[in-house]
Design a protein around this nucleic acid. Sequence first.
DNA 1: ATTAGGTTATACGTATTACAAATTTAATCT
DNA 2: AGATTAAATTTGTAATACGTATAACCTAAT
Lengths: 239, 239
Amino acid sequence: MEDIFGKIGTTVTLSQKIERKIEEAIRSKKLPLGAKLPSEKELCESFAVSRTALREALRRLSARGLIEIKKGSGMYVSEIKIEDAISSLNLYYDLKFDSNLISHIIEVRYLFEPEMARMAAKNRAEEDLLLLSENIKFFKQCDADNTQLEVDTDNKFHLTIAKATHNPVIILSMEPIYSLLPRMRDQFYGNLSGEKAHTIEAHEKIYNAIKDQDSDRAYFEMKKHVDRTWEVYKKHFEK
Amino acid sequence: MEDIFGKIGTTVTLSQKIERKIEEAIRSKKLPLGAKLPSEKELCESFAVSRTALREALRRLSARGLIEIKKGSGMYVSEIKIEDAISSLNLYYDLKFDSNLISHIIEVRYLFEPEMARMAAKNRAEEDLLLLSENIKFFKQCDADNTQLEVDTDNKFHLTIAKATHNPVIILSMEPIYSLLPRMRDQFYGNLSGEKAHTIEAHEKIYNAIKDQDSDRAYFEMKKHVDRTWEVYKKHFEK
DNA sequence: ATTAGGTTATACGTATTACAAATTTAATCT
DNA sequence: AGATTAAATTTGTAATACGTATAACCTAAT
């Protein structure tokens, strides 16, 4: 097929082209982490573009976390922070947030948390145990009227277990999900108050299994726990 | 705590302030999805800033996928695409990619895929079955020399199962992981050739279980499959 | 009445120039 | 040598101008 009349007006703007070029240099490690980019003036000359177009490209790159711009100093290749990596995902969930998404999130927890507890039992460090036990203690003496704090503490318990897997991929994958749970508080966690005693007991059993590095028991106890949470959720949702 | 000597030179640039203001308007739905933003000229007047600062803010927002800018037409609140949401995560993984990350990814698959197969068996549609069966057929008649294609096809099989759960949260969480697997091809999947017969058999068993909506069998067959993959990986890695 | 064609107003893309503000570097002084 | 000051460098903001894409409107020919 001859490409005589191929597209001309692809409307890929100049600043986007510049953005891609610099991004490619970073991805290919030609610009290693922490490296200082040439100044705006030099880059303008290299690319033969105006400062306007160049700067708009740089703004995009900094918005995505690839570079850090320091006034008066220069521009540096930045290590993408975890917050940057998941902020887009968080924003996505934030805008898509509705009851449908809630049930999907509950479902994911129901599905994955037992396996995560299993891995946490294998890989947990002393530090994780400390965090978990402190969390339980705090949860116990938590003001019963402060539902919000209770739910957040509960949520943190589960997130701590995710982190105790010491698998960064799991942590990154699950973090956006847990950061969404506080938003679900008002939606249905209101009737959690009657569950407090059970929650404490369940958390303690899970904690002990993880402490003993008993993977199967950690799995089993967590499964029991999320199964019950699931029931509570369903019951509440039927109203 | 008195904030007498709080930071002054936080160097929050003007364009960042503008960015936040517009972002907040979008998050709070004051600017609903698809809404047309005021023109640059009007926004400049509203915020009382120069076009330069405003445009740099807009570039950031568009880089993050919150708005879409159409030359000659205007700027519109954009539905954040899934690709936008996970592109940051992909970039993060891309830059962090090393043998350590590989083993963590394998571990995550090992951990979650059986449960995902279980859910897929429950929720799969006819369309999913078609995709899976076509994938298996394609894999069978795949040129044995073309390792790359084989691995990608294998990868796609598992991604299709993730999608067959019909849980968008799972899909979003797992997509970045699967998009990383092709990069692992050259690292260790080279010795997969001897596994082709087994892989086909395993995939068929998994497919049949999902087709029959036999959740437990889907879980079991998938677990057997990933366990073996794990063994192959470990064996290869010991070399 | 419909449609092809052109006109015009609007809106975003790029370029240029100028100056402000923060930082770094170099020079100067003690 | 160390501290202080001055100069140079670098990014941030502003203002103006022109290019180019889009959409709405108008006109004339079919």
